[in-house]
Design a protein around this nucleic acid. Structure first.
Lengths: 226, 226
DNA sequence: CTTCCATGTTAACATTATGTTTACACAAAG
DNA sequence: CTTTGTGTAAACATAATGTTAACATGGAAG
């Protein structure tokens, strides 16, 4: 189903973190490489050209932000995914991280579960755009290539966000998506929007589809099911 | 599905690059030949008449630019695809490269992924013109050989860019083409044009066709459908 | 060599579609 | 019957595209 294993380079000066994170991600089927300071990270990045680079902000030799900047300045790493690991309180580096061109950030202390889901989400996000697989659930058909939703052959036109929202929910029918997850997947981790925004879009989708296939799970989120 | 394997000649004085690039492109199904300086590149080019030549700018004996100029002056190599490899900073040679008649350039350090996609894109771009298949959708007929569009037998004359634009969209009815894709396919990856340029051409095509067959997908791109 | 014309491109502005917030209604849970 | 979370409509803000006209440019015709 998947192509070859995605390669992930993890850079952190704490050996414990390298081990825990590496172990958990490798269980997800990724191929893990590690570096223990900024310079080593740069070196291995150029050597491997990994699919994703996880950078600790605080590192000897070069900080994660510096590494990121250097990498981003090179065409070869323009599209490489980068996630920052940051201390919870350190809000400024978070900002700087996103400005520098990171794709996501995860704050310490790190929960393997959280990191795993972020990593998966990131890959899913880019792979959807690349592969753009058509989703079929019952009589509903969602085609990201044609940017089209069909119910019993009737075409329904959704706006971009509406489409992305539906596509996300329908990608895993039955699974509940937390409001947080929806936000980061459809809106991105950087933008900040109010709570009602999701509702409104949910409503619009429900309205346009005319079929009751999005269920509210109060206090949790939404799920797609027929 | 494809014809016979495309032949690619790679010229660079660094053995590492020849090896890496050659290996990766051969995995894509291309037939690889190498040269380690300008003279050898010329020699093998004339001997093989490859489909694509990848030239390092900095080479002993003759630079890539010189090789390109010599080749382009000969009718046999008028249509041969040429890609330059260039050092990141070396902006001037980039300019010169495109002036000399290169089809694309890729800056070092080289990411195999990037190079592969550029190469594939280039072949995709020309393959349409070569095969030049007439597209028929409903009562619309698009003939790239005669450079002619017909609706219900009425001939419509489009300018070059207009035609290429329509041809691209119509080549996959229903599929949404991102603005990026349109740019790289119709304009090429090198030229830089404003956003409005696409719109204007879309408009001209719509106007001349008189039929509403190009749909806007806001925030995404355009698609062709009746 | 100049002029003219077709094409391509840009800039500026108009016109949407789309996204977001606000404010309030409503329902369920405690 | 208060609190909490969600639904809804409408107002608002924003971004994306449509449109026109003016400005290059290159090649053909004179």
């Amino acid at each position: 189903m998947e192509g070859k294993a995605k390669q992930i380079l993890i850079a952190d000066d704490e050996a414990d973190i390298l081990e825990i994170v590496g172990y958990n991600l490798s269980k997800e089927g990724y191929e893990i490489y590690t570096a223990k300071d900024g310079n080593e990270a740069l070196e291995k990045a150029k050597q491997l050209n990994p699919d994703l680079i996880i950078l600790d902000i605080m590192m000897p030799k070069k900080t994660g932000v510096e590494v990121c900047q250097i990498l981003r300045s090179q065409p070869a790493f323009q599209d490489t995914l980068i996630i920052f690991l940051t201390a919870l309180s350190d809000e400024s580096s978070h900002i700087k991280g996103l400005e520098t061109g990171a794709d996501d950030y995860v704050s310490k202390p790190i929960s393997p579960k959280v990191l795993n889901s972020r990593v998966n989400a990131l890959f899913r996000r880019v792979s959807n755009k690349e592969t753009g697989k058509t989703i079929t659930v019952g009589n509903i058909l969602i085609d990201p290539v044609k940017f089209l939703v069909t119910i019993n052959g009737d075409e329904i036109i959704l706006a971009k966000k509406e489409f992305e929202l539906l596509y996300l929910l329908a990608s895993r029918p039955g699974r509940v998506f937390l409001r947080n997850e929806i936000l980061s997947q459809v809106w991105g981790n950087d933008v900040i929007v109010g709570d009602r925004t999701i509702d409104v879009h949910i409503r619009k989708v429900r309205q346009k589809l005319g079929v009751d296939c999005i269920t509210t799970v109060k206090g949790v989120g939404y799920k797609f099911e027929l």
